[in-house]
């Protein structure tokens, strides 16, 4: 497709997906290069979460190709193959979804020890290193219920990273947070992206998306309406629908920032 094509780690081609009668994805094309950060923006219900779930084989499209690091995800038939893929692709959700009965450390250690067979000491060492990265070392022995939303989300990011994924999917990871804690989570993601972690972010944080993304994709109604550099999408969008959406949201953000003070 383009000169970077060989570098692609994720590629979706003409992906169609329906839930029963509802057509949710109507021909999605998306390429993500290794080390890039791609943001997916668009109105609610446009299929953003579904795109991420497809990449991680949590849902299967009816047609189209999905390639992740050499694996044809759409052709996986066995659950064991899908599991093998999920080990390589981290995903972080809006609602953190930590395991409430495990301490922060155990949340991070569970998957490497039980899925990858890493020994406990090794896994704990990595977990503590990751907690340092997300600035939560002192919370290692706390339970999720004792943490703020922002702290829980940072643990969720550490938990995903503990599997040493090739890429990480972020699904509106700051949407459930109060404005004051959004920043601490964005900090962590910004660091990750700077370290070269391939990331796909569904986000409503337009300024953040503009700052860290290599590419921004605008989806609506199950289609990619526009894509380009952050500059292109946020500063001078050609597409009137994108222009309307972006200006509407920046107003919203400005209002919220005002409240935060």
């Amino acid at each position: 497709m383009n000169t970077f094509a060989n570098n692609a780690i994720v590629r979706l081609e003409d992906v169609h997906l329906s839930f029963g009668q509802t057509e949710v994805l109507k021909g999605i094309d998306l390429t993500v290069n290794k080390g890039d950060a791609v943001s997916i923006i668009g109105p609610s219900g446009s299929g953003k979460s579904t795109i991420l779930r497809c990449i991680n084989a949590l849902v299967a499209p009816q047609s189209g190709r999905i390639t992740v690091g050499g694996t044809r995800v759409d052709q996986l038939t066995k659950e064991s193959e899908r599991i093998a893929l999920r080990k390589r692709v981290g995903i972080v959700f809006q609602q953190y979804n930590l395991f409430p009965h495990l301490t922060v450390l155990d949340n991070i250690v569970l998957a490497p020890t039980r899925i990858l067979g890493v020994d406990r000491r090794e896994a704990e060492k990595l977990a503590r290193h990751l907690l340092e990265k997300v600035r939560l070392v002192e919370k290692a022995n706390a339970y999720p219920g004792q943490l703020s939303g922002g702290q829980q989300q940072r643990v969720a990011i550490a938990r995903a990273l503990a599997m040493k994924p090739e890429l990480v999917l972020f699904d509106e990871v700051t949407s459930a947070l109060d404005p004051e804690t959004v920043g601490e989570v964005l900090w962590v993601i910004r660091d990750l992206v700077r370290d070269g972690m391939t990331s796909i972010l569904v986000t409503h944080e337009m300024r953040f998306a503009e700052e860290i993304s290599d590419t921004v994709v605008f989806t609506e109604n199950g289609r990619v309406v526009d894509r380009g550099s952050p500059e292109q999408i946020f500063r001078n969008p050609d597409n009137p629908r994108v222009r309307q959406f972006v200006s509407g949201l920046s107003g919203h953000n400005a209002m919220r920032d005002g409240e935060g003070i």
Partner: peptide
């Protein structure tokens, strides 16, 4: 959502 998170990490049904 908790179960989906576990699936997303790579746990199988039994795990």
């Amino acid at each position: 959502s908790t179960v989906e998170a576990a699936r997303g990490i790579g746990f199988n049904q039994l795990q």
